[in-house]
Design a protein around this nucleic acid. Structure first.
Lengths: 137, 137
DNA sequence: AAAAACTGTAATATAAATTATATCAGTTGT
DNA sequence: ACAACTGATATAATTTATATTACAGTTTTT
């Protein structure tokens, strides 16, 4: 995760949260983030697919939260944007199988990564969008 | 963290752990990881600066653990390799200060990131190199 | 004291990931 | 029919990560 996607996701959801049930255009969102509207729409697509937001086309269209911010937690946001990345990064592709460590390192790392990610998600699950957006009011 | 540095760090430390008090050359390490020796030495430099390993130049030289693996935990490894990256990624550089959300988002994200990272490090601190390397024996 | 086996570091090149921009067809309200 | 939107795609620019090469400096051995 060496990108801004989680930050962007949270920014988007915070904005939508602040706009209640109104639909917010990608252009308005883009201006707030200072980001290209096309990229915002791409990220909106991801959030929509995970069921966090809903969008409407045409005049007066845009996006809004699919649920109350009380019921949106950050683990969902993370899972939506993480794709195949990992909190602890990547593995090396082909460690030396002749070496006792090289032969088993990736399997061992996978276990470690899994365990850490589980704890990590548990922490994120405890944090809601509603709680987070209090700062903006 | 969209790189292999944590994995590489753990791989190096595991190898050293398996070699007890012997010095292990960067070339041997590089072969195990399947990585260029110069890059390995660069990473060794980072681990050395954090006090996790010690190195010796010249013939018969190389690196070894500075402490027993029982006393090396993964939060140290993470802190050594993370540099300025963050578990949850990066912030956007200049959100719109005219927007109530844009004006405060980075400050709010910083709090969130901090809290998550603290929990994350706590989890890593509970995992020792000694425990991890059991798989290799 | 010279050779050999190492490290430490820097410079440069290549590859991959991230972000930006431009474009346009399709939808919906007026 | 027009205007304000979304959704999607293609392409470019930028940044980050990885690889490679080279060489001066250190330490042991002969």
């Amino acid at each position: 995760m060496n990108n801004t996607r989680f930050a962007v996701g949270v920014h988007i959801l915070s904005l939508l949260s602040c706009h209640g049930e109104d639909y917010v255009s990608s252009e308005l969102i883009a201006k707030s983030i200072n980001m290209n509207p096309a990229m915002v729409r791409k990220e909106l697509g991801v959030l929509r697919q995970t069921g966090l937001i809903e969008s409407k086309e045409g005049i007066g269209g845009g996006s809004r939260l699919a649920r109350k911010p009380e019921h949106i937690s950050f683990d969902e946001v993370y899972l939506a944007v993480k794709e195949d990345s990992h909190v602890l990064g990547l593995y090396r592709e082909d460690p030396n199988q002749q070496c006792p460590v090289g032969a088993k390192i990736n399997q061992a790392l996978e276990g470690l990564f899994q365990e850490v990610e589980t704890a990590f998600l548990l922490k994120l699950r405890m944090m809601s969008l509603a709680e987070f957006t209090k700062v903006f009011r």
